[in-house]
């Protein structure tokens, strides 16, 4: 049971990574990007196709991450060009439209046949207290923690972080001060493209084998981000890890394992109820 729970850390770390990308995008560009995992799925399937041609895995991964980054930047530029003066609701709706478009394109380009993903990190690892920690777990968990610290420091302590938060909060006002809104937009979407694509590449071997399945990882990512209120990076990390570990734990029990996917919905619902109560409590005080 403990091993099942620990094994959930891989998925949990990636949920956290993807959730962190969602929070970072939201805090730096005011967009809740529902298309993020579809962009990562695009990268992952590109890697599979490239590896299928005989290309070395690492080269294929680098090219795939570059492809995901380009798609991410194009999406960011589209939002900047057409929706920069609109509110978060419209921008978020635009990313849902982008998700649907990417699902259609992905289906056309990659088909819906399940693919076999290469898992280069599963070969190494260590055993502690009888529990096997694979390379996936170590890398994903390490990346999630490092990214949380890096993003937290960058957004709170650096000038670039302040500028990104300024652009996210008031893009027009930022523009009127002469801030390079376009350049900052490209930085954000490049970063999200790289991290989002790499995260999906890590999780793909254990998560799903189709474009649509990988694209729908946006649900646990959103649950993790919601745990952090789309604001706290640390709570997003905790939310992602919790979700992954709960998912791992429940997979141990044969009775509830088939309903594992509905856990994400239950998780989100519980967070929303809890937050709603918190808001009412605040109002009452």
């Amino acid at each position: 049971m403990i091993e099942s729970t620990i094994s959930g850390l891989v998925n949990g770390s990636v949920y956290a990574l993807l959730g962190l990308c969602l929070v970072a995008t939201y805090r730096t560009s005011g967009v809740l990007n529902f298309a993020q995992t579809a962009v990562g799925a695009f990268a992952a399937l590109t890697a599979v196709d490239l590896i299928g041609t005989g290309m070395p895995t690492w080269v294929a991964w680098l090219i795939a991450i570059a492809v995901g980054t380009v798609v991410s930047v194009l999406l960011g530029l589209m939002l900047y060009r057409w929706f920069s003066q609109t509110g978060a609701r419209i921008k978020t709706s635009a990313t849902i439209a982008a998700l649907l478009a990417l699902l259609a394109i992905g289906d056309r380009v990659f088909g819906d046949t399940p693919r076999s993903f290469v898992d280069p990190f599963s070969l190494f690892g260590f055993t502690l207290w009888g529990v096997r920690f694979t390379g996936d777990t170590i890398i994903a968990l390490g990346a999630a923690v490092v990214l949380t610290i890096a993003l937290d420091v960058m957004l709170r302590r650096t000038r670039t972080g302040h500028r990104l938060r300024a652009v996210a909060g008031r893009p027009l006002t930022a523009e009127l001060l002469g801030l390079p809104v376009l350049a900052l937009t490209i930085i954000v979407w490049t970063f999200v493209g790289v991290v989002g694509s790499a995260s999906i590449l890590i999780i793909a071997p254990t998560a799903s084998s189709t474009f649509t399945g990988l694209s729908l990882l946006v649900l646990p990512a959103t649950a993790a981000a919601l745990f952090g209120g789309f604001e706290s990076l640390w709570l997003t990390l905790v939310g992602g890890l919790l979700l992954g570990m709960i998912s791992g734990l429940t997979s141990y029990f044969a009775v509830i394992a088939p309903y594992n996917a509905t856990l994400q919905l239950a998780f989100v619902t519980l967070i929303l109820i809890f937050k709603q109560r918190g808001e009412r409590w605040d109002e009452a005080r």
Binding site: H162, R165, A166, A168, G169, R170, L172, T173, A174
Partner: peptide
């Protein structure tokens, strides 16, 4: 309108 950055 909206002339300060509220999160800063």
């Amino acid at each position: 309108n909206n002339n300060v950055f509220p999160s800063l």
